[in-house]
Computed example of a mutant assay.
Amino acid sequence: MTRHTIGTRAEWLAARLELLKAEKDLTHRSDEVARQRQDLPWVRIDKDYRFDTDSGRVLLADLFQGRSQLLIYHFMFGPDYAAGCPSCSMIADGFNGYAVHLANHDVMLWAVSRAPLAKLQAFKQRMGWSFPWASSSPGDFNRDFNVWFTEEQQRTGNIDYNYRREPAFVWRAGEEGGAADSHAALAGTDTATFLRDRPGMSAFVREDGTIYHTYSTYARGLDGIWGIYPWLDRAPKGRNEADGVWWRHHDRYDTR
């Protein structure tokens, strides 16, 4: 028997109208936060970042492909992974559709990872993805944008991620079989190695031949581009994650 509140249609409508006020307030607040993002000062990029792509080795400027704006998803896929991070993969499952529309609105969308290009290409083929994906292994791009850390930083507590300092081995204090352990196993690596790469997204603009960094976000800041969560937030039981991590690579679900 259900434990949820049961009501009449009139009671439902009254409650729905109250919720509508809150939803409208949230929408207006979201619009204001978006304006604050766009008002951030731009920071000039002077470093010659290089990437390996399907078209060969290119510079950051080449990733724009004639557009004035560039969005990069920092996809967790280190050189020692056998597969991409399951969470990043679930986010990236929506990129094929988004990338086409963004490219026709003066915005290029790329995924960037540290794994060598051949690994990215093989996993991309496995997942059935077509969006552009570059390897940053030739340079310091991931380090400079705070989505890759060394083993020494990890061991000594010298990691600044998501705009705060992390204590040493903070993730190792979790319970056996936690989210990081589960995802590391699905990515084919150990937990410590898995967590030296991190997720995030960064935005860039190009004006008069100069590239500027405009915005970066990490961790829960990525919820807004995680396409499945707005749907789950509207489902009757919400995200329903009391039992922890449930998602897999989309070709690893039991399809019974």
Rank of each mutant, 00 (worst) to 15 (best):
A99Q: 09
R220S: 07
G128P: 14
Q125Y: 02
L59P: 02
A99E: 10
T8F: 00
S68N: 01
R67P: 10
R57V: 06
W110P: 01
G157E: 02
D190F: 03
D251E: 09
T193F: 11
D190R: 04
M201H: 10
P138V: 12
T189S: 02
S136L: 08
V100T: 15
G177N: 00
F51R: 09
T8N: 15
Y212A: 09
D31P: 05
A15L: 15
M76C: 14
R44T: 07
V245H: 13
R44M: 10
V100Q: 15
Y229L: 12
R248S: 04
S136D: 14
K21D: 11
A179H: 10
Y163D: 12
M1D: 14
K119C: 03
S30L: 08
Y49A: 05
F64N: 06
M76L: 11
F123L: 08
G139K: 09
D140N: 14
G139C: 11
L26R: 14
Y73Q: 03
N158F: 00
T156A: 02
R114E: 08
A118S: 02
P236T: 06
E152P: 04
T150E: 04
G178N: 13
G78V: 04
A103L: 09
V147Y: 10
Y98H: 14
A34E: 08
K24I: 15
S55R: 03
A99V: 15
L71F: 10
Y98N: 04
R114K: 08
G238Q: 09
D46L: 09
F75R: 07
I91N: 03
V100N: 06
V245Y: 14
Y212D: 03
H101M: 06
E175L: 13
F77Q: 13
H4D: 06
D208I: 10
V107H: 05
Y215N: 01
G221F: 00
Q154C: 11
W246A: 14
N142R: 09
P86K: 00
L117C: 05
I159T: 01
R164M: 02
V245D: 13
W42T: 13
A115L: 14
H28R: 11
D181G: 00
A242M: 11
D80N: 04
W129C: 08
R114C: 12
I225A: 05
D243Y: 10
S202C: 13
I91H: 04
D251Y: 08
R16A: 13
D233R: 05
R44H: 13
A192Y: 06
T210C: 05
G209R: 03
N240K: 05
A103M: 13
V100A: 04
A219Y: 03
M108Q: 15
R37V: 03
V100I: 10
G174F: 13
W12I: 15
D62P: 04
S135Q: 05
L120S: 05
V170R: 00
G128K: 12
Q153P: 09
L63N: 02
A103C: 01
E32C: 04
D80Q: 11
D181C: 09
R114P: 12
P132G: 09
A103T: 09
K21L: 02
A134W: 01
R9N: 03
P86I: 11
A111E: 07
E18G: 06
D181H: 12
T191G: 02
P132I: 00
R248Q: 10
A22S: 13
W12Y: 02
R165S: 01
P116G: 07
I225V: 15
R196M: 12
V100P: 10
Q36N: 06
T8A: 11
